[in-house]
Nucleic acid binder design. Structure first.
Length: 468
RNA sequence: GUCCCCAUCGUCUAGCGGUUAGGACACCGCCCUUUCACGGCGGUAACGGGGGUUCAAGUCCCCCUGGGGACGCCA
């Protein structure tokens, strides 16, 4: 059976980690059944909804590769439809006008809490006819059943039962005429043919009311899957304090969308001992019904590890293509350096992110002003002169500037001068990179090119002489 | 305050009545090594507590504790 699922964010901020995972689960469930994935923007709160936020959310989804089949639909453009149902319900008595003011409601709530009761609307206007107070614009409330219970089977939480006694008559249309979330969701999910509602479990307690409204509409509710929330790495609620909460922040920091997706799919779900899942594997193996019911903490360290895995296993050319943007952002011109595929191959096993890869590769693209102090003191001292000079001479003679030949030179010099490899390679490294960290010296020089390499060795020789 | 939910190493998790409680990240050793890394090998580390049910409980039930969510004319 093919499923129709949806992702329905409210455009009040960027796409965050929790939303991204909900979207992923929802997307996977639709895609693995050959169904449809609907995108709907829940912007009934005009005060807080912004166009920028909508764009930010779409950007996030696109970056992650979570493509949608229908939409984006905007609730703000569906007011006519909501009005239609509202009027109908008013007519049939399934909804009614309520003239309670906010102040009255606040007082009511406070009094109930004080008495140790669950705060709820008292139903004052539920069965009251005529003489509404003058000058008060009413809101509209749904007439929730008083008896019986709502039962539904949540794919993740199992059977959920709530007595109607626990529920009150919720506001479905504000005094200003705008319909509210719980109402719009119900109409939309029905109109859009949603078969599986996948959403954060903070909505679990809304579900019974929604089921009642669906029943009022005379239709069967969809299947529900309430996914647990994601906690910060301190076990508390995820927030700005935990570093990157926006999905796009990870893009900025040089993470690969593949890695983030992989991390997210494993948060609350597992398939035996498997840690790495390609998109195809996710589609094949993921099962909404296997998702854990408990919240899980976001672990940046593991995401980083996954990013390293993808950095190393993706085609170098693929990584190189994505590297271009990052080089430019760092103010480097990709044209002034080595072949990017080769660079990725040389650097990827010592980097966690694309940003780090760029940072560690600056010296391939531009000259550096100074040597890293400690490294220069240690490796560009007087004892570096002889091996450096010998290398310089032999390298200059090389008919072909390739890693293997360079390696032979370094090894030859070490043997000739009866030095350990480190005594030869390290001075060369500092000469070439400006610091004591780089890919293997033969690969480093090969990537750097003959001219640049020799020039930098000359400069290092000067430095060593001056220091000696 | 009221209602609801959740509970295995620090973290993500496997487990679905009988296991030396497994894997991964992180951490710590050792090996490899021209740097930094990668990699390989090994190690520390968990069933929150108390009652039941059962020949047998991490696994089922209840209570406690801890954590979370909901209780808006927010979504």
């Amino acid at each position: 059976m093919s499923a129709v699922t949806r992702f329905a964010p409210s455009p009040t901020g960027y796409l965050h980690i929790g939303g991204a995972r909900t979207a992923l689960f929802s997307w996977l469930h639709a895609r693995q059944s050959g169904g449809r994935f609907v995108l709907r923007i829940e912007d009934t709160d005009r005060e807080r909804s912004t166009e920028e936020a909508t764009e930010a959310i779409l950007d996030g989804l696109r970056w992650l590769g979570l493509d949608w089949d229908d939409g984006p639909f905007f609730q703000s453009e569906r007011m006519g439809r909501y009005r239609e149902v509202l009027d109908h319900w008013l007519e049939t008595g399934q909804a009614y006008h309520c003239y309670r003011s906010k102040d009255e409601l606040d007082a009511l709530r406070e009094a109930q809490m004080k008495r140790g009761e669950k705060p709820r609307y008292d139903g004052y206007w539920r069965d009251r006819d005529g003489d509404p107070p003058a000058g008060v614009t009413p809101c509209i409330r749904f007439r929730n059943p008083l008896e019986g219970e709502v039962v539904f089977d949540d794919l993740i939480r199992g059977r959920v039962r709530v007595a109607n006694e626990e529920l009150d008559d919720l506001v479905i249309c504000r005094a200003d005429g705008s319909p509210t979330y719980n109402f719009c969701v119900v109409i939309d999910d029905y109109d859009m043919g949603i078969t599986h509602v996948v959403r954060g479990d903070d909505h679990l307690s809304n579900t019974p009311r929604q089921v009642n409204m669906l029943r009022a509409l005379g239709v069967e509710p969809p299947a529900y899957a309430h996914v647990p929330m994601i906690l910060g790495d301190d076990g508390k609620r995820l927030s700005k304090r935990h570093g990157a909460v926006s999905v796009m922040q990870y893009e900025t920091e040089g993470y690969l969308p593949e890695a983030l997706m992989n991390y997210l799919v494993r948060l609350g779900w597992a398939h035996g001992d498997q840690e790495v899942f390609s998109r195809e594997e996710m589609l094949r193996l993921f099962d909404l019904g296997e998702v854990n019911a408990s919240a899980s903490a976001f672990n940046p360290g593991k995401l980083k590890w996954l990013n390293e895995q993808y950095l190393r296993s993706l085609e170098p050319g693929e990584v190189a293509a994505r590297l271009v943007t990052y080089l430019e952002r760092a103010g480097l011109d990709p044209q002034t350096g080595p072949d990017l595929g080769a660079l990725v191959l040389a650097q990827r096993e010592r980097c966690s992110t694309l940003v780090e890869l760029v940072d560690n590769s600056r010296f391939f693209f531009e000259e550096f002003d100074t040597y890293e102090e400690k490294s220069a003191r240690k490796h560009l001292a007087a004892d570096a002169l002889q091996p450096l000079e010998a290398c310089r001479m032999a390298l200059e003679q090389l008919p072909q500037w390739e890693a293997e030949r360079i390696h032979a030179v370094v090894q030859g010099v070490a043997e000739q001068q009866e030095l350990k490899m480190g005594k030869v390679a390290q001075p060369l490294r500092v000469a070439a990179a400006g610091c004591a960290v780089s890919p293997p010296i033969d690969a480093t020089l090969a990537l750097l090119g003959r001219e640049r390499s020799l020039r930098r060795i000359d400069r290092a020789l000067e430095h060593a002489r001056a220091a000696g």
